[in-house]
Structures are given as C-alpha cells and as structure tokens.
Design a protein around this nucleic acid. Structure first.
Lengths: 251, 251
DNA sequence: TAACGACATCGTACGGCGTACGGAATATGT
DNA sequence: ACATATTCCGTACGCCGTACGATGTCGTTA
C-alpha cells in the first residue's frame, strides 16, 4: 500500500507552528502558509492560474523564489491549498424551505464561486473531499437533498448533476472572457471584424439552422452567447426533471 | 475595426498549396498541415495536451522545431486546428425518430468525443463556430431540436444544455484519470492508502451526510465516483425536464 | 541559361517556467 | 558552548514557446 498523500496534514493545518504549542527550531517563518495561499489566490483572481508562477508569488511576498518550497512542496500542492482556502471564504447559506429554491441554490453557489474565481475551472485532478472546506461544501450540498426519499446514491448523483451544471455554465462564460482577453476584443467586436472573412471562407458551405439560430441568438444577446439566460433555462429544466423524479420516489 | 483572425483561412484550408492550382515557389513542404495536426492529435491523445510540445511534435515528424512555424503561426493556432480536425473524424449519426433518443444522442456524441480525446477538455477559449467541423457539429445539434415548437433562442439553449452536460460528465471522469496518472494509483488504492490519514486529520470534524453517502457511493461504485451512472441519471433528469418544456411549448 | 525572389528548413538564442541542490543564517534543545 | 533542526535563498538544469537570421531549394523571369 502506497504512502498517504503528504499534502493532507497541510490541508487540514495539522503541522502549523501555532497549532501545537511546541515552538520550532530555526528562524521564524516570515509569513504564514495562509499568507502564501492568499497571495496566490489574489494573483490567480487577477491574472489567471497560468500567470501564477512561483517566482512571481515569491516576489509579491518579498521572499526568494525557493523559499516558497518551505511552505508548500510543489506548485500543485499550492493549487490544492488555494482551492480549499477559497472555498472556505464563501459562507454557505441556510437551505431554503422550498425544494426548487434549495436545488437552485446549490447551482448558484457553485456558479458564483466559479465566476468569482475563474481559475477554479483550470484546476485539474483534485480529488473530491480532500480538504476541510471541500468537505464542508459536499456536506452542505447533500443537506439540500436530504430527506426527500432519495437513497444515498441518488443524493450523490443529484448533487453532482447540480454542481456539474453550475460549473459548466461558468466555464462557458469563462471561455468567452478568455478569448476576449487573448484577442483583446469583445465577442461582439470579434464577430464584426470576422464576419466578412467568415463569409468568404465559408463560401460553398451552408448552415441553414446554425445561420438562422446564430443570427437570432446574436441579436437577442448582443453577443454570441448569454450565459445568464442559459443558466436560468438549464436550471429550470434540470429542476423540473429532478422534482419529477423526487415526486416519483416519494410515491 | 480590428483585422480578422488569421487562423480562419487555414482552418477552412483556403491557402493549401493544392487548393488553387497555382504552384508555390520554393521547396515543397515535407508534410502537409493535416499531417502536422494529425500527429499533434496523436500525441495529445496519448499523453495529454500539456505533453504536446512544438519540439516533440517536430521530432515525431522528422522536422526541425522551428519548421513547424511554417505550417501554423503559434501553438495556439495548432490547437484550434486540432479541435476542428478531431471533431471532423466522428461521423455524425442520423437523428433518431424518438425525441428522447434524439436528445440523448446529442449528449452521448459530445461525451464520447471528450472521452476519446480528453485533451479537448483542456482547450480554452476557442470561439464557437470558427471551423468547418465545429460548424457541422452545431448544425447537427440544432437538427436534433428542430421542428419541436421551440424558438431559435430556446433551440440554442437546449443544445447548449445538452452539450454542457455531456462535457461536464466527461470532465469529471477525466479529473479522476488525471489524478490517477499523477499519483500513479487508482482511486480505490488512493482511498485505501489515505483512509487512515484522513481519519487522523479529520479528527474533531464531523460530516454525517458526506460520510454516509460517500461510503455508500464508494461501496456501490468500488471507487469515489461512477461517471457512467452519473451520465445516465443526469441524462434522464435533463431529458425529462426538456420534454416537459417542449410539450408545454407545443400546447 | 542565368539570375532573381519567394519559400521551406532549421540552428541558435532569449526569457520564461518548476524545482533539485547546497550553503549560510537563525532559532531551539542539550 | 555546541549540536541540530529549520528557514532562507542563489545558482543551475532541463524544459517550454518562439524571434531571428542563415542556408538551401524551387518557380519565375530576363
């Protein structure tokens, strides 16, 4: 059996100098792990996860680059800490009485977090649970679907469906922002600049539905897509489906 | 107004030497753009998008690294070409007669492509439409919801909902695979190795729902999650919701 | 046929990245 | 006072994308 993941104690802050009273040898750390992680979150919030470099982070903290490695073992571990820490910042609201509102809130909390910290969407391969705030989050999500007559598996699947949807819409939105930042022009400007070129290049091809729907969407949205509306539309459909399923289970 | 995106002609292959009869000066290209993109897809399929480097790709093609830049302007452009090219490989099936099957197929095609080429999930900020096969795909998706009484906006939103869900489930699955590759152990092994450590570290915290549901899920799935089941569960709920909405629109 | 100009190929180099390594400084335990 | 554990950090290695310029190869033109 392999060794346990060494990031776990750090995630749960079981080795903080202040946790046990025992003082450490050597110089005091200039900053705390939380300071490091908070600064990293600031950078990622402002410039994206790709722009978060160990050197840059160290500079912001007035540390040498390699000093960071006395706080975290690798950049990957740092990202794991960032995720858990940033999830801990949002206070989880009480579950509304109304079932539909309760389900919607799970989606909206997920969506809002991903909007506030788009780099969350770039984090790959963090195992579920893992950190205290991730665990809090999962516990809270399950609380929204407790006592509805669903079995444990269905509770997990329901929560996963809601969270996946919230994340998915946020990701679509981030994709647009990302493209905007990269090309330096808004969606609308990009389409204006490329409309003619697209027409030339597509000569001979025909997309009757896509052309019609794309034009209608573009006019309605004043952009190629509108994530707010998509959120409301999808949310309504998913909740309809879930409520019907729950009603059937309850019978 | 800014200049149009220079990758467009290449995407639609409007500057291929063989497209117009006019022969080019200078030496023939050793390989074709399609060869380059296909080789890049091979690498990304096998080792992920992060493992696709210009040097590595060039080596596989027996080219100098910089030679690639006579085929594509940047690595980013290459990725855009890869997306369109790989989408073109899957033949889009005819739409089934049954509505539910038609909607489900949109999800499954999306899901299957993302499973076959997980690096698609790592591509950020590709504008919709853009390439011929992306356009084909969108046209096909819209065809699944044509003639149901939905207006254009709702057609777009419906298709987006289905595609988002398929992508989302595939992404959850990829996250697990990614973690497995990184740590070199399967989900089950990881949990076995970390069960004790998690217990120690979580001492004092209590997660009644998460603990119960997580255990039940773990036993049922023999893993922390089961994307196949999640796909079926979510698909059923979403289709229920969509069909109800369509029925109401038709009235 | 010879010279020209466009194009493909590719070696070198620059500035970035994560991080392995080892030395110096600083605190505690003996 | 000394040993030891810990922090801090400069240097260096091997990656990355890609800017630049030299060199060779071809179609075109004189």
């Amino acid at each position: 059996m392999p060794d346990p993941d060494p990031v776990l104690p750090l995630l749960w802050r079981h080795n903080a100098p202040s946790a046990d009273g025992a003082p450490r040898r050597g110089p005091k750390q200039k900053v705390s792990v939380d300071d490091v992680v908070d600064a990293a979150i600031d950078i990622a919030d402002a410039e994206g996860l790709a722009a978060l470099s160990m050197r840059g982070l160290a500079q912001r903290l007035n540390l040498g680059a390699m000093t960071l490695y006395t706080y975290v073992a690798t950049r990957n571990d740092l990202v794991v800490l960032m995720v858990d820490q940033v999830l801990g910042r949002t206070a989880l609201p009480a579950h509304p009485d109304d079932l539909r509102e309760r389900l919607a809130l799970v989606v909206r909390v997920q969506y809002d977090d991903c909007r506030a910290h788009p780099w969350l969407l770039d984090v790959t391969g963090v195992r579920a649970w893992l950190g205290p705030h991730m665990a809090d989050r999962y516990e809270w999500q399950l609380g929204a679907v407790e006592g509805l007559g669903l079995d444990d598996i269905e509770m997990d699947q329901t929560v996963t469906l809601l969270a996946t949807f919230g994340t998915g819409v946020a990701r679509a939105e981030q994709a647009v922002r990302h493209a905007e930042r990269e090309t330096g022009m808004s969606d609308a400007v990009w389409w204006e600049a490329n409309y003619e070129a697209l027409g030339e290049v597509m000569a001979g091809h025909d997309y009757p539905l896509a052309g019609r729907v794309g034009t209608a969407a573009g006019e309605a949205y004043q952009a190629a897509s509108d994530q707010r509306r998509e959120l409301e539309f999808g949310l309504a459909r998913i909740i309809d489906g879930l409520v019907a399923h729950i009603a059937e289970r309850g019978r």
